[in-house]
Nucleic acid binder design. Structure first.
Length: 587
RNA sequence: GGUCCCAUAGCUCAGCUGGAUAGAGCAACAGAUUUCUAAUCUGUAGGUCUUAGGUUCGAAUCCUAAUGGGAUCACCA
């Protein structure tokens, strides 16, 4: 639309002897109820024209129409100049731009970006909150890739600490040698079971201690189980062979389980970091900070940074006993990642309950003078709520990821069987389709919402398959493929010269795809893609409903519509791919 | 208490750097299939954009405050 901006600039210059800044020129899509496709808001120009908005619009419109052959007509309503571009303009866009091999393909930006996501704890299976995280991270990585970035997907696994010791201890005490094989349970679920067992036993101990007169706080510290777990952690840190052995065994169970869940979710990683390797990092940085005078030491020897001038608090970076804290480790890990990849940007996909942590983390790195600190970004997303409130893993009110996936597949099966369209499918094709549709529904449901907003998930209502949903879009794609399989279009035949409104509207939508990718990449926002693709699907369905493709009046029109359908299908497929969603050929 | 985030139709959500009469889907109601997949399409109904000020020719959008909801502020991770 640059050529319109230029013409308007010229119009204002000649008509009103004023130079306007091109990005002051406000072009937008014309609302459906008015004639035209592009609208110029003319209020700002009345200052220069000294005339009414209507008259100003009419003058600019007249000028632009004479200036640009593409402009076929215009009308003015109040301060809005609605410009109509001729069919030949849109057809030209379609044939030379949308149909080109390079449509919506970006050339490399020469920038590297790391997306860290998932980052699970190894003491329990993944739940719905992790699902949102994984889908977001994967999609953002895909979008950045599409926009021309060199992307590294990273997963920082929290594989050590008191939480995993709790599972280990409970297994040691009550497990009787149970393994995923003997129990017939997925490894991550088995370990999670012992985490819950620990918690129950621990709570009982606390209750007993409270009954015997201790305060709850004391009881929490004094319970035998927690002390044992802490001892176990110390042994782990000391490299105790037996503890390390058990730790390795139980973690390997969890990894086998995670691998399966990741595979079903359709996400993957280029690089794994493990906290067992990184938890000691950051000690150098503490020294560096002290030396640079960015950190300070208190009398007891603990090391802090004072961020009160930035509206934050004082933050501990090294305990008085010389051990480090979470923040220290994250400082070290940030440095490690940068040393490994020298990326221009580094995105942390982490829930918004850690907003403060990342604000502090980034600020510290900046104060230390790390040149790469400005490339750090916390992609903060809202929690997933259930109608009953928050999910609490220890209280069993979580929606388990594996269960959820299975339920989605089951629901997809029921819907599909009720419609009876897949009789000709083989059994494995059917299973594949149920997975595609079920995951399409789930992923779209979670990704269409702005990441930063919290999200309400109602398991009883489950996820819809009609309306603004993944399956709706998948269905649109299947329809397109169905038509194209009946009659492939011919390449290189003559072009049509006029358009129906439904055709033009669809072209208008399709042409926005590259801008959408760019905008979504800039905002790290898959929801922008999700909502756009929905518009495309709706636009196609309308076109499909109003105009016949295969029974078009003439061969030229038929061929054009086949190409338009094909282009729509490609945008849908690619766009859904950016969300990590597959689209079927038939459904 | 300090700081941060959120508030749009009965429900779930769009609404780009301020622009026209605030849009979708679900749910409700009424229609469309001799025709390319009805998981579709069309229509009706549904709103003081939490409230009160302010900036502006113009505010759901920007600023301030209040209310409601959430998060966070550990020598936890």
């Amino acid at each position: 639309m640059n050529f319109i901006t230029e013409a308007v600039t010229k119009a204002v210059k000649i008509l009103y002897q004023t130079e306007v800044d091109p990005n002051q020129i406000n072009l937008q899509e014309t609302r459906k109820e008015f004639e035209g496709q592009v609208t110029l808001v003319t209020f700002p120009f009345t200052k220069f024209s000294k005339k009414s908005p209507e008259q100003t619009g009419a003058e600019i419109g007249e000028f632009v129409k004479n200036e640009l052959p593409e402009v076929s007509d215009f009308n003015v309503i109040k301060g809005f100049l609605n410009i109509s571009l001729g069919d030949s303009y849109w057809l030209d866009q379609f044939y030379t731009n949308i149909l080109a091999d390079q449509f919506a393909v970006f050339s490399p930006k020469g920038k590297r970006v790391m997306v860290e996501y998932s980052s699970p704890n190894t003491n329990k299976p993944l739940h719905l909150g992790h699902v949102r995280n994984n889908l977001l991270g994967y999609s953002v990585a895909k979008i950045l890739e599409a926009a021309g970035y060199d992307v590294i997907k990273a997963n920082l696994v929290n594989d050590r600490g008191i939480h995993i010791c709790k599972s280990m201890l409970a297994w040691q005490k009550f497990g009787q040698g149970e393994t995923p094989e003997t129990a017939g349970v997925k490894g991550d679920h088995l370990v999670g079971k012992y985490y819950v067992i620990f918690d129950k036993a621990y709570k009982k101990e606390i209750e007993a201690l409270v009954a015997s007169g201790q305060t709850e706080e004391e009881a929490k510290k004094n319970a035998a189980l927690i002390k044992e777990a802490q001892e176990m952690l110390l042994k782990w840190e000391a490299g105790d062979e037996q503890v390390i052995g058990l730790w390795k065994t139980m973690n390997s169970w969890v990894y086998a389980g995670f691998t399966e869940t990741y595979q079903r979710l359709g996400v993957n990683f280029d690089k794994f970091y493990y906290e067992s390797n990184t938890y000691l990092l950051g000690k150098d940085i503490v020294e560096e900070g002290l030396q640079k005078g960015v950190f300070f030491q208190k009398e007891d020897g603990s090391v802090w940074i004072d961020l009160t001038a930035d509206g934050l608090d004082q933050k501990l970076l090294r305990r008085s006993d010389g051990t480090s804290v979470y923040m220290t480790q994250d400082l070290g890990t940030a440095q490690l990642k940068y040393d490994d990849f020298q990326m221009d940007e580094s995105i942390y996909v982490v829930g918004n309950e850690q907003d403060y942590h990342f604000k502090v983390l980034f600020l510290i790195l900046e104060k230390l003078g790390k040149s790469w600190a400005k490339g750090l970004y916390h992609l903060s997303y809202g929690m997933v709520d259930l109608p009953s409130g928050k999910m609490k893993s220890r209280e069993g009110t979580v929606v388990d990821a594996d269960d959820l996936i299975s339920e989605m597949e089951q629901t997809a099966r029921e819907h599909t069987e009720a419609l009876g369209k897949v009789e000709s499918f083989s059994e494995s094709e059917k299973l594949q389709l149920y997975h595609t549709i079920g995951m399409g529904a789930l992923k779209y449901f979670l990704l269409k919402v702005d990441p930063k907003k919290r999200l309400l998930f109602d398991p009883s209502e489950s996820v819809d398959f009609q309306g603004h949903t993944g399956p709706f879009i998948q269905y649109t794609h299947a329809r397109i493929r169905s038509v194209l399989n009946r009659a492939p279009f011919e390449v290189g035949v003559e072009k049509v010269s006029r358009l129906f409104p439904e055709e033009r509207d669809l072209i208008l939508l399709l042409i926005q795809f590259p801008d959408m990718i760019e905008a979504a990449a800039l905002a790290y926002n898959p929801a922008a893609i999700a909502n756009y693709i929905y518009e495309v699907a709706k636009g196609f369905n309308k076109f499909y409903h109003e105009l016949s493709i295969l029974q078009a009046d003439d061969q030229l029109t038929k061929n054009f519509r086949l190409k338009l359908a094909d282009a729509s299908g490609k945008v849908i497929k690619k766009g859904m791919g950016l969300l990590g969603i597959d689209v079927p050929e038939r459904m």
